[in-house]
Amino acid sequence: MVLGAPAGDLQTRRQIGYLPELFRFQSWLTAREVLVLHCRLMRMPRPGWAAAADEALHVVGLDGRGDDKVGTFSKGMQQRLGLGVALLGEPALVVLDEPTSALDPVGRHHVRVIIRELRDRGATVFLNTHLLEEAEHVCDRVTILSKGRSLATGTLAELKVRRPSARLRVTGLPGGWWRRLASFGRWTEQGDWLLVEEMAAGRVPELVAAIVALGGRVEAVIPEQQSLEESFLKLLGET
């Protein structure tokens, strides 16, 4: 079932926008003609075609390029146009397959903004990506898939199973300090740095105060969180 209707239902597909990973539009059409073609295929009322095309061109940053042939577009511009086509008709569900693979950093940022705006509008966005950093930036819930099987689903916080840690550079600590600070977490020395793992959230200020109370000088504190990539690798058994 999709949007309360059986998968494939034609009426429901009018509310779905889709950007395939590998696609190409008719190179001999202009960007505006591509958008109008999709308005027609969506059975959108004719009077709304021109405004919908202009709006889509504006949203994806292709203002002024609407009358250029798609064949003259770079891969990134075609991807922007693909996103514009997927957004036609204010869809309730948008499926984006690797939407930023051909975009430069500015383009990626722009797409993330668009995805957040879609979410704020109440639309559901399925983002399929290999860029886990991208998922961290925009996704409320993440499913990790491997070989067609769902390994884990949840919010970012739920998937980042390891508790936060901190890396510290401290001098002047008295001997046996680690016994006095053992309650904060598991300590290891890494050269000039101390690493405390499995620490309860929000205890960094308390830890710094305890070190200072012992006579230590805190020169640097770097709080660390498990990245989604670490969770991903862990789920796949690669770490």
């Binding site: 034609l10 009018r14 395939p20 696609f23 190409r24 999709h38 086509v85």
Partner: peptide
């Protein structure tokens, strides 16, 4: 092969 049809059949058309 070029991916043109994928964008068309995603629309509410048979």
């Amino acid at each position: 092969d070029s991916g043109v049809l994928q964008t068309v059949v995603a629309r509410p058309v048979r």
